[in-house]
Design a protein around this nucleic acid. Sequence first.
DNA 1: TATTTATTTAGCCATTTTGCTAAATTTGAA
DNA 2: TTCAAATTTAGCAAAATGGCTAAATAAATA
Lengths: 98, 98
Amino acid sequence: MAKKSLAQNELEDFNKVFKALAHPTRRHILVVLRSKGDQMAAGEIVSAFSYRWPTITRHMQLLQKSGLVSVTRSGTQQLYTLDKTRLKTVVGNWIKWF
Amino acid sequence: MAKKSLAQNELEDFNKVFKALAHPTRRHILVVLRSKGDQMAAGEIVSAFSYRWPTITRHMQLLQKSGLVSVTRSGTQQLYTLDKTRLKTVVGNWIKWF
DNA sequence: TATTTATTTAGCCATTTTGCTAAATTTGAA
DNA sequence: TTCAAATTTAGCAAAATGGCTAAATAAATA
């Protein structure tokens, strides 16, 4: 398919980010990540909530797709990193319409 | 049940507003409302989109529950009014955590 | 190489969401 | 009082979402 326009990319960003922010648990995960210095291992996140590991994994994957977190491996651990800038930029750009 | 704490009320606001903002069509409706001076009749909104009337009605009801729009009747028409302040305040208050 | 630790993947199920059509309702006008 | 216009309500079906358990995988350790 053809290249996407800037506006189209921004629209997709809005879609992905607001979808990620739609669920209370995902919003909560972001806040906890922030409170822990923007980076946590998957297991730490699981420990912070009362959901099973696969449930958290799925929330994290959705957050990744939105670009709000990225992940790197460190030994057996998966480290999730919050992208505060993206969060504030994308939400801020949408709010600018008002 | 007992009275709700301030924090609880704010949490509920976050829940309702981010749920309302989760769907692209609802976000689009808010932008169109803004572009038309913050107030439109139901039928105008329907005309602006390619969804059937009941579909738009349901989106509008969800937006109302979130407090992002209010509605008043004028003759046979329902006028929906955007609450820009609430939109910016609630989203802004959440973003403050970052 | 076998085991353990950390984590994801697969797949099931219940609930919620979102679209639709058809019917009902409300208000103003004839 | 009837009629028409504007809008909602009822209810159905498909798709998306979010929880779970069990099985699979990857990296470090014994």
